[in-house]
Design a protein around this nucleic acid. Structure first.
Lengths: 247, 247
DNA sequence: GCTGGCACCCCCCTATCGTGCTATGGTGGA
DNA sequence: TCCACCATAGCACGATAGGGGGGTGCCAGC
């Protein structure tokens, strides 16, 4: 039975996990409490065909995970899409209005069904300017996710994701190409709307140097222009809205 | 006593609230269950000296609210800052490592204390590319926020904020200057890195028209350049990361 | 009937950006 | 020692954006 005490214990334990396996064990236990078959905690990192940033811990069938990955569903997946539009956690059966409809969705859901994944629920996890993700629990076809499980998932989802975040990047829990300090400084000023010459004056650099830093930053993100660079750096957490907010 | 059943009831009731007063009543009840004195649900909308976007519901002393507003603490407030760096909810007494230190913080906290606001906890609420906010509960000085309250707040924070979001904008739950459709289309394509001439080709418009739409969009956001426009439109929810993600 | 907002189109001009190439000095690891 | 990476700086060119004009037609609200 999922209880507040169990959630409390989970929140305590999860701060102590050392690796993904430990996190998986805890999620498996939580899963058992809720009577569900599957769990999946994942960063949504397909944004730039990301290499290995972020963490994914799940007990889905390997077949399904492969099918999912081969199609690069990290962002297109209806559950992930819905989780980008919500914050409170939702049942999959209720997510259509959140994610809108896409022709491929039907295929994804039926394929999941084929792999023994029926109804489920998802707790979104967002931090402004950092990697996004979600924690999901799913049941075998025929069993409906219930309210109590959703409440329980709400209690443990945040801590679980926070733990994953720390595992992904023990240092500052940031994901992404990680610009150099100078590149970040230049980018932040540029994203605030400063022309290059003023960035140079502010940082006491030659305009050409600033241009060079921005150029290298663009290279890292494979971004054609300054706008794309800013957007991607924001999404990936190299810069945050707070830093870019004009003050 | 905050229980899962109470949280469940809250989550049901909160979907039915019609106005801010109704939401306040529910939060007051939740507050009573947790034994706390204060609640505050708020969008963090000081970003652009925002006029009236977003919702704020609280029972803080008027004096304190005024003091807070006069200083424009919407973004600078240490609790809000910390909530921009976390997702799982936190006790105020533990938030220093999250928010970093600023000299003014001491003043804010002691001023809060002076108004009868002691320890508390905050549940952050973020949606990529939408308004940020948080739900906080606070106790009178001397009483410490407890774990059970945190768990309870985790269960009700999301639904409460979601309700506030819908109140703020019954239509699509979006906050911000709301660009016209054409402006949005142009901006999205521009933020993907397309040069104006290509945007024109895609939308079957003259480049000058595209330029015109972008110009008007910039005017609305009072944004100097395209980068600033994209960042602000992202922050305010006129466009979302998903739309801007290269595909 | 007027005003305002929106979408649409056209012109010009200049500041800025994006990019290609080069080069130096420092640092840290293999 | 050498290589890789970073920060710094410079130069030159073409592409682009941003800002300033000028218009048209449509529709809603007063």
């Amino acid at each position: 039975m999922p209880t507040m005490d169990a959630a409390h214990a989970f929140a305590l334990d999860v701060t102590k996990v050392k690796d993904a396996a430990g996190l998986a064990d805890l999620l498996r236990e939580a899963c058992a409490l809720m009577g569900c078959a599957w769990f999946a905690l994942s960063h949504h990192v397909d944004f730039l065909a990301a290499p290995d940033r972020g963490v994914r811990v799940h007990n889905y069938p390997e077949d399904w995970a492969r099918w999912f990955d081969e199609r690069g569903l990290g962002l297109t997946d209806p559950v992930h899409r819905a989780s980008h539009r919500s914050l409170e956690g939702f049942f999959w059966r209720n997510m259509k209005p959140l994610s809108g409809e896409r022709p491929e969705d039907e295929l994804v859901l039926s394929e999941a069904q084929r792999h023994g994944i029926g109804d489920g629920l998802t707790i979104p996890a967002h931090i402004p300017g950092e990697a996004h993700g979600s924690v999901s629990f799913a049941w075998t076809p025929g069993i409906a996710a219930n309210d109590r499980a959703l409440l329980f998932a709400r209690m443990i989802g945040g801590p679980a994701f926070e733990a994953a975040r720390l595992l992904a990047n023990p240092g500052l829990a940031r994901v992404g190409p990680r610009l150099t300090d100078r590149q970040r400084e230049c980018l932040i000023l540029a994203a605030k709307g400063n022309p290059i010459w003023r960035i140079g004056r502010i940082l006491d650099l030659s305009p050409d140097t600033v241009r060079e830093h921005l150029r290298n930053a663009r290279l890292r993100y494979d971004a054609k222009g300054g706008t794309v660079l800013a957007v991607r750096a924001l999404y990936d957490g190299d810069i945050s809205f707070e830093e870019v907010a004009k003050r």
